[in-house]
Design a protein around this nucleic acid. Structure first.
Lengths: 336, 336
DNA sequence: CTGAAAGCGCTTACAG
DNA sequence: CTGAAAGCGCTTACAG
């Protein structure tokens, strides 16, 4: 496999009888340059398909035109589709600005993959696709003083973040359920260590406060680590006679629905179900599931734009909250 | 955000009173160098946390230490989990060899994102995570004479490829169904344009040939473009009295199961169901679904290793086929 | 075994 | 408006 010999800035300068400086300026648009000269250069470049060597440019400018995207490295990631769409959003904006995406994978707060990328100075900035309460990635990036933005909320000082307004969304969904006269709502879900789960739980509690009601702490099933736990808790929830199961996320929701089907308990006739998220996991479910709607691609786009602004030294808002929709479907139809 | 001033090779050379050449050699291990000198350099480097600037190294060596991974860009990608695991496999091998991953997204054979990366010479090679019968990516990469390997099979000449043995796997699964005395097996699925689907269909047909039976062409439902089509075809399949539905992939299978549930047709009592793939999509299904088992992470690792070998000029085998397992579950339990 | 020097392909003060 | 020259931080023949 022989690569075709690439033409360099010197080649085009020679061919046109101008200096490399001039060619460089014609391309970058920086510095004074004659209209006509510029036109000649551009024409030649076009005709001969000259592309500046980005590596050389990087070295000269100490800029890579790469950004690092940190993906979760667990296999059982709750909503892969979210990360995918989000990645597409990031890529769309990055691509438009001639930036490329370098991937780092962060599993259980292990930053070694991220460290390689950053220490090797391969990127101009980083996007974290997920945050933790105790966040090794954030701590690492802050110690390196390299620009980054987090998708999702972070409790750390000075982290530029863009998130969906999970708290409001969950508050609103919960309020609606309460308004629909559900009396015993069980909340079920996984790791409270995820900041997003904290926000969701907060919204859930606020909805109760707003109507002056008490959350039944006995119906809170959090930090469930696996499907077996979920199954067991569903049994308990049914025994306690809850009239609605609210799921912190769709992985849990999917399992809950499976368990209910196994127990031959009908939704929504015998119990209502809703989820604080809407992934494709539940897409084909019968009945359709009441949930929230967030734009994953949109959040990626906003995060990327924010990072690029930071890289270019612009002011950015420290926290951006994106809107949501509450989508009521069959699973919470109340006929009580 | 001020980056910490990075220490360069010149700094360590000065500090140690040696030349930059020597330092470079100590690090790379290339060229003769005194043991003791080398030790001194390494010690200093360690102590002062010196990391060579990869960009400069790239420029000097015309090598980037990046590889490009091309992901599918459709939102309704059949098995996201496959691509994720596969990506993890690639990353694991790449990381171990100090390579990073640059992402390109290829939607409907649009190679513009890939073109940016390649034209800008940002990578040393490329991994295609998916192939097509008419493959713009392959054509593009071949025209650029840049090393690449395809995950999945390709009909193009000279494409280095690593794939699971879908054909054998599907042949075997089909054989077993035939042995289990299923007489009317319907095959349902999407785009025949995917090479993988062609292999699957081929395996399916071979199983029939092996027992001297005829494929019932009336029971082949291919190129279904959306869920509505799938639903309609399931109706037809039932009317025709098929005793088993074999799905080309899990997206289709998931929809088929949904439709059967809606029609209140029990699996496996009234009809058997199996899939030519096993994604997490079907994980929670009741009954559990007979399907094939492929190692997604493994294929990523092998593909990456193959590419790295190519980059380093080693001979690689033009086609690697990875093994599979047939996993029989409840959905094909035969009690006829 | 070690070093001075040229080179990778750009950018960017500085001078004109 | 344009160019000569230095510089980005490495590597690598070549010479010693």
């Amino acid at each position: 496999m022989e690569q075709q010999k690439k033409i360099t800035i010197a080649d085009v300068a020679d061919a046109l009888g101008v200096s490399r400086t001039t060619v460089s300026r014609a391309i970058s648009g920086k510095g004074r340059i004659g209209k006509e000269t510029r036109a000649r250069v551009m024409e030649y470049i076009e005709a001969h398909d000259y592309k500046p060597n980005v590596i050389a440019k990087s070295l000269a400018q100490s800029k890579t035109y790469n950004i690092c995207v940190v993906m979760p490295g667990e296999y059982d990631v709750i909503d892969l589709h979210f990360f995918q769409e989000c990645l597409f959003g990031i890529q769309e904006i990055a691509g438009a600005m001639e930036y490329d995406l370098l991937l780092a994978i962060c599993k259980n707060n292990d930053v070694s993959s991220l460290d390689r990328v950053i220490s090797n100075q391969k990127v101009d900035g980083t996007i974290l696709m997920r945050t933790f309460v105790e966040d090794a990635q954030v701590e690492y990036l802050q110690s390196k003083k390299t620009p980054f933005v987090a998708i999702g909320s972070s409790n750390y000082q000075g982290v530029v973040q863009v998130d969906h307004n999970h708290r409001s969304a969950c508050r609103e969904l919960t309020s609606i359920l309460l308004m629909k006269q559900m009396k015993k709502i069980a909340l079920i879900g996984g790791d409270e260590g995820h900041v997003v789960n904290q926000s969701r739980i907060m919204g859930f509690r606020e909805a109760y406060e707003a109507v002056g009601a008490q959350v039944d702490e006995d119906l809170l099933y959090l930090n469930l680590e696996n499907n077996v736990m979920v199954d067991k808790k569903v049994d308990e929830i049914i025994e306690k006679g809850a009239d609605c199961i609210l799921c912190l996320d769709d992985a849990v929701c999917s399992r809950v629905l499976r368990k209910l089907r196994e127990k031959e308990i009908n939704v929504p006739e015998q119990i209502r179900v809703a989820s604080f998220y809407n992934s494709t996991v539940l897409e084909n479910n019968v009945p359709s599931i009441t949930s929230l709607n967030f734009g994953a691609k949109e959040i990626g786009m906003v995060a990327c734009q924010t990072l690029l602004d930071m890289i270019e030294g612009k002011e950015v808002s420290p926290r951006t909250l994106l809107p949501y929709q509450v989508v009521l479907k069959e699973s919470t139809a109340w006929n009580g």
